[in-house]
């Protein structure tokens, strides 16, 4: 008996050692490339003045500037709103695509999946310049509008909020599709058939069976798209043309051009905190919804 316990204990001990070895590389990488630089950014955000090289001391000056300047507050709120709009938009457009891909046989899914992934293989700058050509006054959209008689002369499509949202949606849509598809492909179709047998119509099945089961994929996609959107800076700069300002652009300008690293660092920390909060709240709400559905099912 004692021997058996000892063997079990040793096996458990061995498993825990293996577990430590397995996570060591990722923890090491995280420490080296995320935690240490992040600590540097947080430290920089507490420097007084407009330069960090040769700076000393500890000050809340940068955070006060961010908190008291309405411009930064407006930009922060707008950035979050853009993130939410693009995330919801990509969910509405991406869910049907992801779900339909998940229900396809593997051989048919492959070719369609390439079409979804293809935009991710292109340089972002190339995509953005492509959109600039398409949405320009002499671009294909304006030519089409004039051709069908919808407008008499070219209309301004570029350098608007709508253009920025459209391009961001196109860029990040594949992340939503892939997240939804990976989860939906694991939902057993038998469950949908069972729901139909219980006289649930298609919408009820979708609402009470598919959505709750696909929620982890939806939340993963939502989180990815939201984070990518709020941190975007190339698209708002090139497609927004100055009229659309997002926090990523402001941080880039302060760090790279203004060399005001303390302010840029403070803005980055604020953005990180607010983004984490929004993602956290969204995930908690989704988890509650999921738990609610499960308890009803029980």
């Amino acid at each position: 008996m004692q021997n058996r316990s000892l063997v079990r204990f040793k096996a458990r001990d061995k498993r825990s050692t293996v577990w430590v070895w397995l996570i060591t590389p990722s923890v090491g990488l995280l420490l080296l490339f995320m935690i240490v630089p992040l600590a540097g950014v947080i430290r920089t955000s507490f420097y007084p003045g407009v330069r960090s090289f040769g700076a000393e001391g500890f000050s809340l000056e940068q955070y006060l500037e961010v908190a008291l300047d309405p411009f930064y507050q407006i930009v922060l709120v707008e950035t979050i709103v853009y993130g939410l709009v693009v995330s919801v938009g990509s969910l509405l457009v991406g869910f049907p695509v992801g779900y339909s891909l998940a229900r396809l046989p593997a051989n048919k899914r492959r070719s369609r999946l390439i079409l979804v992934i293809l935009p991710l293989t292109l340089s972002l700058v190339v995509i953005v310049f492509g959109w600039i050509v398409i949405l320009g006054r002499s671009g294909i959209v304006n030519q089409l509008l004039i051709g069908i008689g919808a407008v008499d002369s070219p209309v301004r499509l570029l350098y608007t909020k709508g253009a920025v949202l459209l391009v961001l949606l196109q860029q990040f849509l594949p992340f939503m599709i892939l997240s939804v598809m990976s989860v939906c492909s694991k939902i057993d179709p038998v469950l949908e058939h069972a729901s139909a047998n219980l006289r649930a119509n298609r919408f009820t099945t979708f609402r009470r069976v598919v959505i709750p089961l696909a929620m982890p994929g939806i939340m993963t996609g939502f989180t990815l798209v939201f984070i990518l959107t709020v941190s975007a800076f190339i698209t708002p700069r090139l497609v927004g043309g100055g009229s659309v300002q997002m926090l990523g652009s402001i941080i880039y300008e302060q760090v790279v051009t203004g060399l005001n690293w303390p302010l840029g660092a403070a803005l980055s920390v604020v953005m990180l905190a607010v983004t984490s909060l929004v993602v956290g709240v969204a995930n908690t709400l989704a988890a509650k919804t999921l738990t609610g559905h499960r308890s009803i099912a029980k």
Binding site: I132, R137, S138, R156, L158, G241, G242, S243, E253, T257
Partner: peptide, 20 residues
């Protein structure tokens, strides 16, 4: 009157060339 402000010289060049 300003339709766009940009940090990129190439972007501005494109705006003039495309008559934007």
């Amino acid at each position: 009157n300003i339709t766009s402000t940009t940090a990129s010289t190439v972007n501005l060049l494109q705006l003039f060339e495309q008559e934007e």
